[in-house]
Amino acid sequence: MHKKPLSKQIYDARWCYLFVLPCSILTGMFVIYPIGMSWYFSLLDWSGFTKEAKFIGLQNYYEAVNDEFFWDAFIRSFIFMFGTVPVKIVLGFIIAVFLNNQVLKLAPFFRTVIFMPVVTAIAIIGIVMTFVFSPFNGPANKFLMSTNLTSAPIDFLGNPDTVLPTVMGVYVWKWLGITMMYWLAALQTVPQDVYDAAKIDGAEGYRLWIHIILPIVLPFAIVIILVEAVGALNVFPLIETMTAGGPFFSSEVMEIYIFRTAFVTDSGTMPRLGYACAAGVFWGVAVLFITVLQGLWMRRTRRI
């Protein structure tokens, strides 16, 4: 059978085009167009609130790469990623292995509890956590003092040394439920007879874990790492509501930096949308680069 001419093919598929149209328009307006525009804006000297905008080429980029706050935020974003993702992956796996026990009658209840922070609005968690970790009688400090773990209250969010680890801990708490669900899905793909064999206690059981079960779930691990890594770079709501990047910018990750340079005026800086876009584009390209790198790694590992 010979192929129909293209015009006929297109005409026959007219309903298909009509059906993809609404979603394409929305995605075009709110995803594709903004990506294009942010490249253009990044070349402007523009506050965003007036009509005056001056084309200045790559000057915004030049300024960004010479700003030490920019690089601090850039690096901090990656510290955040490398500090949280491994913890989530390992902790999520351990919990999933336990909760994958059919015998454990309360497993569904534990799953629900661990998943609960995931459905809670992130901004609310950020705000509530500023109370929980308050140095003035906050529950965290109360608990530490009453159990004599510390003698003086710790200013978790007010001290530049403790603020980032605290926010990272809250982040892990908030999203661990998702990691656990990913792992539970992965563990469900292991054949039952492998599990039956792994029941054997002692050395042989552990060997089965390392040589048989882990290789089966490894492809999942790679997808999970990829999803988690990108997720850990998108932490704006949590940090904005918990610390707004403070104290003294010590928890300012990339997204906070962009938001601060684009909108926030109470730190005395002028809003500069053009400059913020340049920082955003730089950041977006860096994230994309990492994603592609991981994607390639994923493909290679899956083929083996």
């Binding site: 307006m29 995803v31 294009g36 998108n234 938001f259 955003g280 994309l288």
Partner: peptide, 16 residues
């Protein structure tokens, strides 16, 4: 577009 961070598109969306 899967991994485009929201922060990356927010300013043009605001402008749009």
């Amino acid at each position: 577009t899967i991994f485009i961070p929201q922060g990356y598109t927010i300013i043009p969306v605001f402008d749009l």
